[in-house]
Amino acid sequence: MTRDWVSWHDDYDRPGSSLGRRLAVVQGAVRAALDAGAERVVSLCAGQGRDLLPVLAAHPRRGRVRARLVELDERNARLAEERAPAGVEVVRGDAALTDAYAGAVPADLVLVCGLFGNLSDADVRRTVSALPQLCAPGATVVWTRHTREPDLVPSICAWFEETGFEETGFDRVSLETAEFGVGVHRYAGPPTPLRRGERMFTFLPGGSRAQESPR
Rank of each mutant, 00 (worst) to 15 (best):
G183P: 08
Y187S: 00
R61A: 15
D121M: 02
L109P: 10
A24E: 14
R66C: 04
L56P: 12
R148N: 03
E149I: 00
T127A: 07
V88D: 14
G28W: 07
P190M: 01
L56D: 10
A107K: 04
H9F: 13
G20I: 07
T177Q: 07
V184L: 05
R199H: 07
R125L: 15
R199A: 14
F203H: 14
L97A: 14
V25D: 03
L111E: 10
F180C: 05
T192F: 00
E149K: 04
A77N: 08
V128C: 03
R40A: 11
C157M: 08
L23D: 06
T177S: 13
D108S: 03
L204P: 01
P154V: 07
T192C: 10
V91S: 09
R199P: 06
R22M: 12
W8D: 10
E167M: 06
C157H: 10
L53E: 10
A95K: 07
T144K: 04
V153M: 02
D73W: 05
V110I: 11
R148V: 01
V142C: 06
L119Y: 10
T147D: 03
G63Q: 11
G183V: 05
R62Q: 15
I156H: 05
H59C: 05
V128S: 01
R50N: 13
C157K: 06
L175V: 14
F165P: 01
L52V: 11
A95W: 12
R50T: 09
A96N: 09
G20D: 06
A77G: 14
R83Y: 07
G28C: 06
R78E: 15
G117V: 04
P132I: 03
Q48Y: 03
L56A: 11
L44Q: 04
M200I: 02
V173R: 02
A80Y: 05
P60A: 09
G206R: 08
L111K: 04
R83H: 13
S208N: 04
R145D: 13
G197I: 08
A139D: 04
V6I: 11
M1K: 01
A33G: 01
L119W: 08
V42F: 11
F203P: 00
S208H: 07
A95C: 07
A36G: 09
P85K: 08
R199V: 12
R186E: 02
T147A: 11
I156C: 11
L19W: 04
R199N: 02
R62K: 14
E179V: 06
P214T: 01
L79R: 15
G93F: 08
T163H: 02
V91L: 15
P106A: 05
P190W: 01
E149S: 04
A58F: 00
P85F: 06
F201E: 02
W143R: 01
V30M: 14
